[in-house]
Computed example of a mutant assay.
Amino acid sequence: MNNSVDSLWHYYQQTEFLFTQMLSTQLSFAIITAYNPKGQVLSACQNGLLDRKLQNEINSLGLPYRAMIGTSQDRTHMEKSWAVAIDKAAAIRLGRLFNQNAIYYVEADNLQLVPCLMAKEETLLGAFSPRVNRVLDLPDIE
Rank of each mutant, 00 (worst) to 15 (best):
V114T: 08
V135K: 07
F128M: 05
M22H: 13
Q40G: 00
L97K: 14
N47D: 04
W9V: 10
P64G: 06
L50D: 07
A90P: 02
V106M: 05
D87I: 08
L61T: 09
L111C: 07
I31L: 11
D109R: 10
Q13I: 05
R134V: 15
V132M: 06
H77L: 04
V5R: 12
V5P: 11
A89C: 03
V132L: 05
I69R: 03
S129M: 11
L23D: 06
A67E: 13
N3P: 02
D87E: 15
C116Q: 05
V135Q: 06
P139C: 09
N110Y: 05
N36Q: 02
I103V: 07
L54P: 04
P139E: 09
Y104F: 15
T20C: 08
L138P: 09
L63M: 12
P139L: 12
S72N: 03
K38N: 12
K80E: 10
L136Q: 13
Q73T: 13
Q46G: 02
A85R: 12
P37I: 03
N2E: 10
R66W: 04
I69E: 00
I69K: 01
R134W: 09
I141G: 06
V135L: 08
G126D: 08
F128Q: 06
F17V: 13
L94S: 02
Y12L: 09
T33C: 01
Y105G: 01
Q46C: 00
A44Y: 04
N133P: 00
N47K: 06
D51C: 12
Y11R: 11
L117M: 14
I32A: 06
I31G: 01
F17G: 01
C116R: 03
S60P: 09
T25W: 00
N59R: 13
S60L: 07
L94A: 01
N59A: 10
M118L: 15
D109T: 09
A91F: 03
H77D: 03
L125G: 06
D87H: 14
E122L: 09
K80H: 12
V106F: 01
L18A: 03
Y11A: 15
L23I: 14
L49Q: 14
R134G: 05
E121S: 15
G70T: 10
A30D: 04
A44R: 11
M118I: 13
R96K: 15
A34F: 01
T15F: 03
Y65P: 08
R52S: 14
L23M: 15
V114D: 05
G39S: 02
A30R: 04
A83G: 06
L124R: 08
A90Y: 03
K120A: 15
Y104T: 07
L61C: 14
D74M: 02
S43W: 10
G70I: 04
G39M: 03
D87Q: 14
Q40N: 11
N133C: 11
V132G: 05
P64N: 13
M118W: 06
P37V: 01
A30H: 04
Y12D: 04
S60G: 04
P115W: 01
E16M: 10
S81F: 08
L97D: 01
V84R: 11
I86E: 14
I69F: 03
G70H: 02
P37C: 02
Q21I: 07
T71C: 12
L97V: 04
K53N: 14
S60M: 09
M68W: 00
A102R: 09
N59Q: 14
S7I: 02
A119C: 09
Y12R: 12
P130C: 12
P64Q: 11
I69Q: 00
L94I: 03
P64T: 11
T123Y: 02
